[in-house]
Design a protein around this nucleic acid. Structure first.
Ligand SMILES: [Mn+2]
Ligand SMILES: [Mn+2]
Ligand SMILES: [Mn+2]
Ligand SMILES: [Mn+2]
Lengths: 220, 220
DNA sequence: GCACAAATTTAGGTATCTCTAAAACTGTGC
DNA sequence: GCACAGTTTTAGAGATACCTAAATTTGTGC
């Protein structure tokens, strides 16, 4: 029903999509925490989204996206991840800085802009953090990589994806020469950290579990 | 006083800057026409801008920018024209399509984005329509070119600037192979049109006065 | 000077998105 | 079953940026 989504509606839809990756309903409070607003504000926005048939709201029992809500969320995620890729590849942004810029611009670029940066980038499937970029058709490329935490030493792996939600982790990793595509050898697995050898720098790096649990890898 | 300018405040400041190029005060109604809002809306926004010391408002006698209002307006114009240049040069937009996209994005790019596209473009002084791009210091490059309407035939000229306010004119000109930097020879000056030879295409084009008055040229 | 039309401002209202405080609901623990 | 803590919704209000309609002011034409 609703054709024009406001900046806020788009942010709510994107957040609900992220929080329902496990296919369950998401409670009001989770959305409030994620968006840094009060639960009462979430309730009123949810009501608005439900009126537009973008979410299914069962009072006191959380919310889930409808098909059209999911489509709108994926459209925004496509904008976000294409922008992150473009900022990184074409404008030389650090992978720790792309999120903030993309999170604003995603709401304001046109479909023409989207198409142009996508084709300029060769229609990429993954963003600078290895997150999958939905196609124009809303299909998400696969992300089959296991967490590095679950890979026993010794092993040689290629970094495919990093949980980008903690800026500190991104800064730490790039300072050690570790990014998407980097190949490493796991030398030792301890209970609170692992030791790896970064093949491009030939340096040995100690990765605390807080970092290891954020890395997803291809085993080779 | 005001540190954070809203999208709307920025649009009003930009508009007031444009409408006071002649260094006079601008009346409420002109601003209302330009921004497609009601005069009453202009009055209340002007009040807000005056509270922030961005404009000088004398009740019933129009408005002018203060020094800090002018600085804010130029900052927005720099964003706009850098974006137009970037969209045109880096993303292949037609010069008729850059305005709409830039007019939205100008409010949402960061200073880092501004700096990166500026240096990527080699710190350009003019946008795709020949409009001057203010420097980070707020200085506008010169635009000394006379209107083609005032150049008597015969003459050979280079197009330096186009009044980009009418999209139709931009579409017409590019369809004839005429853009910034194009060299033409004025063959004949009539009262309602001129005939020119476009050197790059070796074609003769009839330009109605409605177009001629929008072109500014270097005489060679 | 003064009437009068045009421009401008004031007054009051709508829509969006947020907040705080109070009320209502839910489900667990006994 | 029922109290009670935690969650969620409702109620009411503030900020922003518009609107329409009703004053108010201005300056020109006589
Ligand atoms: Mn966002
Ligand atoms: Mn990302
Ligand atoms: Mn604008
Ligand atoms: Mn321009």
């Amino acid at each position: 029903m609703a054709v024009n989504l406001t900046h806020s509606m788009q942010d709510y839809l994107k957040t609900i999509f992220m929080l329902t990756a496990d296919h369950t309903r998401v409670p009001t409070t989770r959305i409030a925490q994620t968006l840094n607003v009060q639960p009462a504000s979430v309730t009123s926005m949810i009501k608005k989204l439900a009126d537009c048939h973008l979410v299914d709201h069962q009072s006191y029992h959380g919310v889930a996206l409808t098909e059209s809500g999911r489509t709108a969320a994926l459209e925004m995620i496509r904008h976000h991840r294409l922008l992150e890729t473009y900022l990184s590849t074409a404008l030389g942004y650090d992978w720790a800085d792309v999120h903030e810029e993309a999170d604003r611009l995603e709401h304001y670029i046109s479909e023409e802009f989207e198409d142009r940066i996508a084709s300029m980038l060769g229609n990429p499937l993954y963003d600078p953090h290895g997150d999958p970029i939905p196609g124009r058709d809303g299909v998400l490329p696969p992300t089959p990589w296991p967490c590095l935490l679950d890979v026993p030493a010794p092993a040689t792996v290629t970094i495919r994806r990093v949980d980008s939600s903690q800026r500190d982790a991104l800064v730490f990793l790039s300072s050690k020469g570790i990014t998407i595509g980097t190949t490493c050898t796991v030398l030792k697995t301890a209970s609170s950290y692992i030791m790896i050898d970064v093949s491009s720098t030939h340096k040995t790096v100690r990765l605390p579990n807080a970092i290891v649990q954020r890395l997803f890898v291809d085993q080779i």
